[in-house]
Amino acid sequence: MTDAEIASALAALGHEARLKLFRLLMRAGPEGLSVGEIGRHLGLAPSTLAHHLGALVAAGLVEQEKQGRAVISRADFAALRGIFRAVEAECCAGVETLDDDAA
């Protein structure tokens, strides 16, 4: 996972409404929720919901599937695990000491 992909995903989650939306989809599990159900849970206007869902889809955190007339949204659990693994991989890896000649 690239730094740009990680930054995009974290930026998408950095908005309160998108974080609430993503957490709702996490609680819903692999079955996901229809856009209408999400709107009822969060009380967002359809255009606002579409905007926030679009940002989460673009960031690779949410997948959508058309089922008849409904669009089902699901959290992409594998993507979230990948982000956490990529960030965690840096833990305690050490930092190169730089010369401090300027001081």
Rank of each mutant, 00 (worst) to 15 (best):
G36R: 09
L19G: 05
H52T: 05
K20V: 09
L80N: 01
L61Q: 03
V57L: 04
G82Q: 04
A17G: 05
G29K: 09
E63I: 06
G36T: 13
A45R: 08
G32E: 00
G54A: 05
R27K: 10
L24A: 10
P46D: 08
A55E: 05
K20S: 13
R69I: 06
A45Q: 05
K20R: 14
H51N: 12
H51Y: 15
A12R: 00
L44I: 09
A59V: 04
L49T: 02
V35Q: 07
L19S: 10
M26Y: 15
V71A: 04
M26V: 15
G14K: 06
A11I: 14
G82V: 06
R23T: 13
L56T: 00
R69V: 04
A79V: 12
L21Y: 03
A89C: 13
G43V: 08
M26A: 14
A70Y: 11
L10C: 14
K20H: 15
A11E: 10
F77I: 11
L49H: 03
D76E: 10
L21G: 00
L21T: 01
L80H: 03
G43Y: 10
G39E: 11
F77V: 11
Q67D: 14
G60F: 01
A28N: 10
A59D: 00
P30I: 06
S47V: 11
L10I: 15
F84C: 10
E65S: 13
R23K: 09
L53C: 05
A89L: 12
G36M: 09
G54K: 02
L56W: 01
L42T: 03
V71Y: 01
A86I: 14
A89N: 13
A11M: 13
R74I: 01
V62G: 00
R69L: 12
C92A: 15
L13K: 00
R85C: 05
E63K: 06
V71C: 03
P46T: 13
L42Q: 03
V87Q: 07
G29N: 06
L25D: 01
Q64M: 14
A78T: 11
A12N: 03
H41D: 08
G68C: 06
A45S: 07
G68N: 08
E88G: 08
E31D: 15
G36C: 07
C92R: 15
P46V: 05
L25Y: 01
A75M: 09
R40F: 07
R40T: 13
G54L: 01
G68F: 00
R85W: 10
F77Q: 07
K66H: 09
Q64K: 05
R69A: 11
V71N: 02
A55I: 10
C92I: 15
A55G: 07
L10H: 08
A50S: 15
L53N: 01
V71T: 15
E16K: 08
S73Y: 15
